[in-house]
Amino acid sequence: MHPGVTPLVEARDVHVHFGTARAVDGVSISVMPGEVVALVGESGSGKTTLIRALQGLQPVTSGEIRIRGAEPEWKGRAGRRTFHDPGIQMVFQDPTGALNPRHTIYEIVAEGLRIQGRRDDEEELVATAMARAGLRPPERFFSLYPHQISGGQRQRVVIAGALVMEPSLLLADEPVASLDASIRGEILALFRSLVDESGLAVLVVTHDLGLAWNIADRIAVMYLGRIVEVGAVEEVLAEPQHPYTRALLSVVPGRDEKPQLLKGEIPDLRNVPSGCRFHPRCPLLQSGLLPEEVAARCVGEDPGRIGLEEIRAAACWAVAR
């Protein structure tokens, strides 16, 4: 899709199954250098499992993962293979929980370096990473403990702990969901400026479409283990094609349109509906406006997976592809 550029990370038809639960059920996604991709979905959509797989912590059942165009260095036996790539770092939802209360901020930020056995220029690297994460002057925070700083600063410490490894990709799982609304903007602005200034890429998992609008270049919408719609943020959010994306967008507070409430909750991953997995809740199908042959396909035929090559797509029989 970006000819000549190697994606930082590329997942092709990745499956992660837990027994009969298909948490990730054939997902393809890529992140290019210098872009922010938002992976949007509700809890139970498999988005957290997917990014754990991209990070190498979650063994995949099948499918292919490539890091900067190459196979990662797999460890462990078949079926339980994991990998670690210092170029991919993680930012967590709950910064308070992600920081060991018994370690100082300095020790927390330096932890990655110490694990990698890099000790020579540790202090300089730690200070630089903290300054990049907006903790200035860094020295002021070195000997403090997590409980002595605010929630927003804790999230900056988590980010600094990732930046110290000089990653090319940050995976962020709901990075502002547990923060006060007023702090949210600052942390998001930090992500955007890291991307714009140093060519870092970010894959951010969120349920918040406003966050995608705020900082993301591309968006992928996930439902029940599959990506159901992808595209540039402006296009997807201005003209959503998949009925699920439309419904999600309609319930964003403060919008003028009437909220399109879906019935019930996201089904259990162990009981993925046949046909289109969204059909039991699909307002379009329920409206009865679909031509009969399309409606029949919705119930009986899987609309398939969205491939890596597709720039703008929706996995929906009612949408012409």
């Binding site: 007023s182 600052e186 602005a189 705020n214 959010l237």
Partner: peptide, 26 residues
């Protein structure tokens, strides 16, 4: 104003790629 700006209006060009909020801590 700072609090309201933290909730972008999707489709509003001025908040696109420009998250805003308040500086500092409560």
């Amino acid at each position: 104003r700072g609090l309201a700006a933290a909730f972008p209006r999707i489709g509003d060009r001025s908040s696109r790629m420009a998250p805003s909020g308040l500086g500092g801590d409560p």
